[in-house]
Design a protein around this nucleic acid. Structure first.
Lengths: 279, 279
DNA sequence: AGACCTTACGGCCGGCGTAACAATA
DNA sequence: TATTGTTACGCCGGCCGTAAGGTCT
């Protein structure tokens, strides 16, 4: 009955070359290691070492054994990790979204409907979302359009409308509505991690520069303390009361208003039907 | 440090369904197994079982663990075998031949030149010999023709000439020479394990039947006690003095005399150059 | 009552460390 | 002399078995 500690010790001997060195690395006395290598040799029943009077080396059998041992050991050692990962994935709902807004509504909802599950969210781009839904990385995704893949099932889960957020002193602050092109060329303050909104604004205002802030608090402070234009959305305002004196001006381009769709694999429809029911 | 006996025990529990049954199969007390399954669970750190008051079942984590364990265990258990096989193959020269005669000369020769090696011989057919030489199953093969594959190196290693062996009373026993066709239709006594000679005689004498004997002693006795024709060869006669009163008549067909060639892989030429030198 | 799992307690075997020795460079 | 490997001896932790108890059918 091949014992694991012998294989570990053999692998260490192969790695470190001498019994003394290997024993030290293994936190083991050197005589113990010497004994155990003999034991392994006897157990397998063929010579694994060439023994000079005070030198020990692996022969071909020993090298082969050590290689096989390394492979088997790494497999054994990975078992616990694989099982833990599997367990965690079983207890986790991974939600991939194309923008932050859907998270604000869906996370509390999912937590309530699946109280034993951990809700994990990730903002990334469309292609990654679709791929991730296929390969099981996400159980649920939110897109800003309705996918037509028959393997998916989807349901509208809210809208979001983008506004310019201008200081009252801005030359266009009195306008009732504006288009992207009206402010194209001005520099904007922008949060990072806003999903597709980033790509959209960059695309619609190719002459503007966007000053990316990674920290929400910093962003708010700079917005209040500067005259740089920025963006806000109806959804964001509903969730986070803002104390700034900024003027919010609707954007007339049709891309400035999006409908979100919550999507899951058809074969997981049953698992999430409650969620779709509530929406 | 994942211990193997725990995985073995888990695999047994999966296989037999209850702790009691598994413990019995493992020659282990049932409480010990119960304890150990708990220990494994704690070591991995996630629940592996669903525990009713007096029932224990694997949950999904447990099933996964058991599967991974089975795989890893079979790998571990095969290590010793793999190493023993490797060691044996290292100490063995496998010689594949197309007929028995070359064995008689080559086996003693190889034993003498490689006194620490075991010489293993096998009679099989041409295609297997060539394939076996390629894939390492044989280090040396003997064919009855010279192969032209550039990966091989070959050297003539003797000839063998086939004779009819007829009782003195046979109607053709006085002929100085005969061809296969002269005796086609008669029933022959034939040894098994004679390699290509079997196919050749069957092919050259399609109307004859061949009475196959697997035992040499039986064959000799029947030859002496019957009037059935059989075969002999010059090489066989040189190695094994025969006491029968049979008449040996040369066979005129050109296929009745063959030249043998010893073949090895070119890249192993060095290892066997002594052998080729002696031939 | 019988089958199953769990907890508690004590024994024992196996792997380890210390010590002492032999050989090489 | 310093380093390496081997042999001898006694300790101790961990795994096991027995015994006893609880739950379900």
């Amino acid at each position: 009955m091949m014992e694991l500690y012998l294989l570990r010790q053999l692998a260490a001997f192969k790695a470190y070359g001498t019994l003394s060195e290997a024993a030290e690395r293994l936190y083991l006395s050197q005589p113990a290691l010497s004994r155990n290598m003999r034991k392994l040799e006897e157990e397998i029943g063929v010579p694994l070492f060439v023994r000079s009077r005070n030198k020990l080396e692996l022969n071909e059998n020993g090298s082969l054994t050590a290689e096989l041992a390394e492979k088997a050991l790494s497999e054994i050692d990975s078992i616990a990790k694989q099982v833990r990962d599997f367990d965690r994935s079983r207890r986790t709902i991974s939600l991939g979204v194309c923008a932050p807004a859907p998270i604000w509504k869906l996370t509390p909802l999912l937590s309530q409907l699946f109280p034993t599950m951990t809700i994990q969210t990730e903002i990334t781009e469309e292609t990654e979302l679709l791929e991730g839904l296929y390969n099981g990385q996400y159980q649920l995704i939110v897109l800003h359009f309705q996918p037509d893949d028959p393997h998916f099932i989807s349901h509208a889960c809210g809208t979001e409308k983008l506004f310019f957020s201008l200081p009252p002193t801005h030359r266009l602050a009195k306008e009732p509505a504006l288009s992207f092109s009206d402010l194209d060329g001005e520099n904007f303050l922008l949060m990072s991690e806003i999903g597709f909104w980033h790509d959209m604004t960059v695309r619609k205002m190719p002459h503007s520069r966007f000053l990316i802030q990674h920290d929400r608090f910093t962003f708010d402070e700079i917005v209040n303390a500067s005259v740089l234009p920025s963006f806000s959305t109806d959804t964001a305002n509903a969730f986070f009361a803002s104390t700034s004196d900024r003027v919010e001006i609707p954007i007339t381009d049709e891309e400035a208003e999006v409908r979100y769709f919550l999507v899951c694999l058809k074969k997981q429809e049953e698992q999430f039907e409650q969620v779709f029911g509530v929406l």
